[in-house]
Design a protein around this nucleic acid. Structure first.
Lengths: 210, 210
DNA sequence: CGGCATCCTCTTTGATACTG
DNA sequence: CAGTATCAAAGAGGATGCCG
């Protein structure tokens, strides 16, 4: 294991989770919850199987991930974060917060999983009118749909379609991001390819202050 | 440039600052402020010169670092963080906060710069008795001394010795860290090699709640 | 000196194939 | 499904040389 050899909290953190792919594995375990090897792999398009295997072993030795022996019916190993692993949440949120600036560049042929929206949603959206009745927004980007529920001052989200959405946003991930976060006016977003159904005025409920 | 090719805020952040050494260069520019190539290099023991050069170029292209042409007398280039670079502060603080858990292992022959204490100090110490008169603590680890000033509810620190310290802590970095943060009782720390002069009871002023 | 560029060796990675 | 095995390519680390 290659270390920086520095007595510094930042360097020591990077010694443990600074290798390529490592933090993205933690990301998958945070947004997906405990899951199987193949679930992690499909959330990390491009990773080589040997690397995923090696990184998981390293994370286990470091006490960040633990593998849970097969429960009777599933008969497979589950990977889950330990307490120390969960405590990496703030690191990932800080990275995601900083990285949102790159989400509005036109995406070429990048991979996308709607679970990754978790970071922008929890970091950027807020319930700006907590006293108004709850609202459901469905986001549909071609991948799995995501449902955002807004009400009582909190914004939550979950995978899957909404039963009776008040608003549906459909389009490529960057255009949906721009519309959700207010980087682009709804009219401009629609002209750029966003499809909507429902009350687009509801977006002002969740967008961050300009 | 190698990217993850994922439309995800975290992955895109790591595309830019995920390479080896990159975040540590940003760390140096945060704790040292704007400085010269050699100042960065001496804060990064072990880095190869070509890597530092390449990373700085990359950071400049990414708009995280800017180089300032030689002011007349110094006749050398200064590197400084841009706004986007400063905004990496929360990322480094989150990493440092998480990494403090590794600061209490016995250090073998790790490099140490007292400027690196900046992260534990600002993350962990607080003024727990803001109404008491101000207090000055000097930390001396063999490297450059650091002075911590506590008063009016804020904890500040600066390089260099204190004029009239109320307390001086002297010893190897891990033992000083343990004493400062309260991971170890003062008596145990002294038995483990800590030297003190002044009023060790002042430590309760800054240590985090147990 | 400060700020690199080059060359060389060694380690890590990425892509693919294969196995219990 | 959950990995290992193999191997070519890329990157890291170290030494040295160059140039204002």
């Amino acid at each position: 294991m290659r270390t920086y050899g520095q007595y510094c909290a930042v360097a020591k953190a990077l010694d443990v989770i600074g290798d390529r792919w490592t933090l993205l594995i933690v990301r998958e375990l945070i947004v997906q919850g405990p899951c199987r090897y193949t679930d992690i792999a499909q959330g990390l398009p491009g990773i080589a199987s040997n690397l995923l295997s090696e990184r998981l072993r390293h994370l286990e030795e470091a006490g960040i991930v633990e593998r849970q022996a097969a429960p009777a019916p599933v008969a497979t190993t589950l990977y889950r974060l330990t307490g120390a692993g969960e405590e990496l949440g703030p690191v990932l949120r800080a990275l995601g917060h900083w990285g949102v600036r790159y989400m509005f560049d036109p995406t070429g042929d990048e991979a996308f999983r709607s679970a990754w929206l978790s970071f922008p949603i929890t970091e950027y959206l807020e319930d700006r009118r907590p006293l108004d009745p709850p609202v459901t927004i469905e986001v549909d980007t071609g991948e799995r749909p995501v449902t955002i529920e807004v009400g009582d001052g909190v914004v939550t989200h979950r995978p899957g379609p909404a039963d009776e959405p008040d608003l549906v946003l459909r389009g490529d991930p960057p255009i949906v991001m721009a519309a959700l976060t207010g980087m682009m006016a709804v009219g401009d977003a629609v002209r750029a390819g966003l499809e909507t159904s429902g009350d687009t005025a509801l977006l002002t409920r969740v967008r961050p202050e300009p």
